[in-house]
Simulated scan of single mutants.
Amino acid sequence: MDETAFPAGAYCHAVSRIIAAGQRMDRFGWVPATAGNISIRLPDGTLAITRSGGHKGLLGPDGVIRVDATGAPCTDGDRPSAETLLHCQIYAHDATAGAVLHGHSVASTVLSMAGGDALVLEGYEVQKVFAGQDTHAARVHVPIFDNDQDIARLSGVVAPHLAGMHAGYIIRGHGVYVWGADMDVALARLEGLEFLLACELERRKLG
């Protein structure tokens, strides 16, 4: 790849947004230890994405790397997360997607392990943060997929459902994936989904 033609300013801006997003997600407890990953699509179609194994609340510029649209690192020796493929899949499916967030909250982990192939959210005002939702009376389906260490196989299971995922999806016992046109939209959707999942968990505690 011709690095001289790459817009370095766009990459630096993306890195700063990813670092800030990691800090925000960490404050809410959504990326414990080395969990989670964060990416932004760059103007040339490559991605800025968190490096494998780093704490998302303690990211520095070296905690973000650049990969191509297939997830291959643009710099020899860089090690992207195995889940980079799930980010690439979202960008390939949705030409408007500009940022993808993956977190591991307590609520998403516990609720997804309770069984079922989806969570249905209804009656919450915050549902309106998701695309296509304009009333609390709508039913928002959040698909749940069984966890699989074979990410290519997992992406194949997720693929047929991407078109209907207005609120993202959950990997069972693992965490959520959400995306948006830019980082601000993606963060709003993540925060909205995590708020709703936390509400659902509290309701179940109440019986």
Rank of each mutant, 00 (worst) to 15 (best):
P43T: 07
L193F: 04
T135H: 09
L86P: 00
G60Y: 02
V120C: 02
A8T: 11
A10K: 12
L193P: 04
H87R: 06
S81H: 05
V67A: 11
L58K: 13
G175Q: 06
R203F: 07
G71N: 10
P143L: 03
V158L: 06
V178W: 01
S112C: 02
S155V: 05
R41I: 13
G168W: 00
D68M: 13
A118N: 07
G57Y: 09
L206A: 15
M1D: 06
E202G: 03
C199Q: 09
P43A: 09
V178A: 05
L193N: 05
A69H: 13
L119F: 00
V140F: 00
S52D: 00
A92M: 06
H161M: 00
F145E: 03
A5P: 01
R204F: 11
V185A: 15
G116R: 02
G164P: 12
T46M: 13
D76C: 08
K128Q: 10
V176T: 15
G123D: 07
I38T: 13
L111W: 02
A14D: 07
S81R: 03
Q89F: 08
T84D: 02
P32L: 11
A167S: 11
H166P: 00
L190D: 04
A97F: 02
L187E: 13
V185W: 02
A198S: 14
R79V: 09
T46F: 13
A82S: 14
H87D: 05
G156I: 06
V158I: 15
D26F: 14
Y91F: 15
G192K: 00
M165L: 09
K128H: 03
K205E: 05
L193C: 08
D117F: 06
I19N: 01
A131I: 00
V157A: 14
L121E: 04
G36E: 05
E83L: 04
I40A: 12
F195R: 05
K128G: 04
T50G: 10
D68A: 12
G173Q: 07
Y177M: 11
D94K: 12
D150R: 11
R17L: 15
P160E: 07
G180V: 08
I38L: 15
G180W: 04
F6M: 08
I90W: 03
A159P: 07
D68T: 12
C199L: 11
H55L: 10
I19S: 04
A35L: 08
P73V: 02
S16K: 09
T96W: 14
A118Y: 05
L206F: 12
L187C: 14
A163V: 02
I144M: 14
K205D: 01
T75G: 06
A137R: 14
